[in-house]
Amino acid sequence: PAHPYDRLKTTSTDPVSDIDVTRREAYLSSEEFKEKFGMTKEAFYKLPKWKQNKFKMAVQLF
């Protein structure tokens, strides 16, 4: 299930529990994912792991 970005980011005051914290981005809706990352999930997962992590750090999901 998708969760709002505000509850997934590492600085959230009301974090979602029971998620894989190493894959926070996977819980974003497709729309919100595209808004935050500027690309689709499919394109994101084709990137090298280090680049994925760099993007995730930039949007507080790492």
Rank of each mutant, 00 (worst) to 15 (best):
P1Q: 13
P1D: 12
P1M: 14
P1H: 12
P1N: 13
P1T: 12
A2I: 15
A2G: 10
A2K: 14
H3F: 15
H3W: 15
H3V: 10
H3T: 05
H3P: 07
H3S: 09
P4D: 08
P4I: 06
Y5M: 06
Y5L: 06
D6R: 00
D6F: 01
R7D: 08
R7S: 04
R7C: 14
R7N: 07
L8K: 04
L8E: 04
L8M: 05
L8H: 09
L8Y: 05
L8P: 04
L8Q: 03
K9F: 07
K9I: 10
K9V: 12
K9C: 15
K9H: 07
T10A: 03
T10M: 08
T10P: 04
T10D: 09
T11F: 02
T11R: 02
T11W: 02
T11L: 04
T11Q: 07
T11P: 04
S12N: 03
S12R: 03
S12Y: 06
S12W: 03
T13N: 12
T13V: 12
T13G: 04
T13I: 12
T13Y: 08
T13Q: 12
D14I: 07
D14W: 11
D14Q: 07
D14F: 08
P15Y: 03
P15D: 06
V16E: 05
V16M: 06
S17C: 15
S17I: 13
S17Y: 14
D18K: 05
D18G: 14
D18W: 03
I19P: 03
D20P: 04
D20F: 02
D20K: 04
D20E: 08
D20I: 05
D20A: 05
D20T: 05
V21F: 11
V21R: 07
V21L: 04
V21E: 12
V21N: 06
V21K: 07
T22G: 06
T22H: 11
T22S: 10
T22I: 10
R23V: 05
R23N: 06
R24D: 02
R24V: 06
R24Q: 03
E25L: 08
E25D: 04
E25A: 05
A26V: 10
A26I: 09
Y27R: 01
Y27E: 02
Y27L: 04
Y27N: 02
Y27W: 05
L28N: 01
L28T: 02
L28K: 02
L28V: 02
S29F: 06
S29Q: 02
S30F: 11
S30A: 13
S30D: 15
S30R: 12
S30V: 14
E31W: 11
E31M: 08
E31L: 05
E31K: 10
E31F: 10
E32H: 02
E32C: 11
E32V: 03
F33D: 01
F33M: 01
F33L: 01
F33A: 01
K34A: 13
K34C: 15
K34R: 13
E35N: 07
E35I: 11
K36H: 11
K36Y: 15
K36R: 09
K36V: 15
K36W: 13
K36I: 15
K36Q: 10
K36D: 01
F37S: 01
F37A: 01
F37V: 02
G38N: 09
G38Q: 07
G38F: 06
G38T: 04
G38V: 02
G38I: 02
M39L: 03
M39Y: 02
M39P: 00
M39G: 00
M39R: 01
M39I: 06
T40Q: 02
T40P: 03
T40N: 11
T40C: 12
K41N: 01
K41Q: 07
K41F: 07
E42L: 08
E42Y: 10
A43T: 12
F44K: 00
F44H: 00
F44S: 00
F44D: 00
F44T: 00
F44C: 01
Y45G: 03
Y45H: 03
Y45F: 10
Y45L: 02
K46L: 14
K46G: 13
K46C: 14
L47H: 01
L47P: 00
P48L: 00
P48V: 00
P48F: 06
P48A: 05
K49I: 13
K49L: 14
K49N: 07
K49G: 08
W50S: 11
W50M: 03
W50T: 02
W50R: 02
K51H: 08
K51P: 00
K51W: 13
Q52N: 00
Q52Y: 01
Q52K: 01
Q52L: 01
N53H: 06
N53D: 14
N53W: 11
K54V: 14
K54D: 12
F55S: 03
F55G: 00
F55Q: 06
F55Y: 13
K56V: 08
K56E: 02
K56I: 05
K56L: 07
M57F: 08
M57D: 09
M57R: 14
M57C: 15
M57W: 13
M57H: 12
A58P: 01
A58W: 14
A58I: 12
A58V: 09
A58M: 13
V59Q: 08
V59R: 06
V59A: 10
Q60S: 10
Q60K: 11
L61M: 14
L61G: 11
L61D: 13
F62C: 15
F62E: 15
F62Y: 15
F62T: 15
